[in-house]
């Protein structure tokens, strides 16, 4: 990645170990149904967290609430991002401030050029950080360099956003966006699902490259194979809208072998956070 830019003026530098994201007793509902029932989680710079759990346990909901999806209502609890009340920010301001969500199902946007979309979005983040905006030519150079991270063909720049992309191409496009936005906190919602072995390796390598000592990553996944490529510092297991258990990479491995029933048996108290 090209990172010759001047030091951001609007974003105070992050030190490894700084708390970037702090979620306290978060409750949220969608369409009148309570999905999150007291999630607490603290994520520091330099950490990689994995979030696992059955379908419907609230993982995706948590990611959408963090990103600010309007369909979800927070009924209790708080999220702090660095020293800001994240829930008070609009979705676009969260993104500009450095919170990124890689979608499980990236939407297709017919007629909107991927290149232009990436440029506008990259510039929105740059503007927030006090960096100069990139014009079409400068951006095209930048994005072509960046695409190498996910081994994406520049031909995808000419297409409409995600339109007609295969599952794997969509996910690569998500990681490309992550690379361009240089978030401090990246949440990747099942970025590994629907990928073949080669695509998984490419995506995992991309994410690994982008995980810096000054950034934090939250991987939502069902599969050990992603965690084989990216070793998490913490593994959390969600059930019924709460984090039931927290451990290290061995927890993921145990889950892979024993299934979620094993966790359910362990009764629901939150494990103390690091």
């Amino acid at each position: 990645m090209t990172s010759t830019e001047t030091t951001p003026v609007c974003e105070t530098p992050v030190q490894t170990g700084d708390v970037l994201l702090s979620i306290e007793n978060l409750h949220a509902r969608v369409e009148g149904k309570e999905i999150l029932r007291g999630v607490s989680l603290r994520i520091r710079a330099g950490e990689i967290h994995a979030l696992m759990g059955r379908n419907g346990s609230g993982k995706s909901t948590l990611s959408k609430v963090i990103a600010g999806h309007p369909a979800y209502t927070v009924t209790a609890g708080a999220i702090h991002y660095r020293d800001q009340d994240l829930l008070a920010l609009s979705p676009e301001d969260r993104a500009r401030a450095g919170v990124f969500l890689g979608f499980q199902y990236p939407v297709e946007i017919p007629g909107v050029s991927n290149l232009e979309f990436l440029r506008v979005s990259c510039n929105a983040r740059r503007q927030h950080r006090g960096q100069e905006e990139l014009d079409t030519f400068a951006f095209e150079d930048h994005v072509r360099d960046t695409m190498a991270i996910v081994q994406m063909d520049p031909a995808f720049l000419e297409r409409s956003v995600n339109e007609g992309f295969s599952g794997g191409e969509k996910k690569r496009n998500e990681v490309l966006q992550m690379a361009l936005l240089e978030p401090l906190v990246a949440i990747l919602d099942e970025t590994d699902s629907g990928l073949d072995i080669d695509a998984l390796r490419i995506v995992a390598n991309g994410v690994k490259t982008l995980a810096l000592p000054t950034t934090a990553t939250l991987l939502i996944t069902h599969y050990q194979r992603l965690l084989d490529a990216i070793t998490p510092d913490f593994v959390h297991v969600m059930a019924e809208g709460r984090i039931l258990r927290t451990g290290d990479k061995d927890l993921a491995m145990a889950l892979e072998q024993r299934g979620y029933d094993w966790i359910d048996g362990a009764d629901g108290a939150d494990t103390p956070q690091p």
């Binding site: 999806h69 979705p91 676009e92 946007i109 936005l181």
Partner: peptide, 24 residues
Amino acid sequence: FYLQSRGIEPEAAVSMLVSGFCRD
């Protein structure tokens, strides 16, 4: 929401979507 979550203002996002709709 997808566009907003990439830092794009709702107004600009709507106009991007409309313009995409009219591309042909």
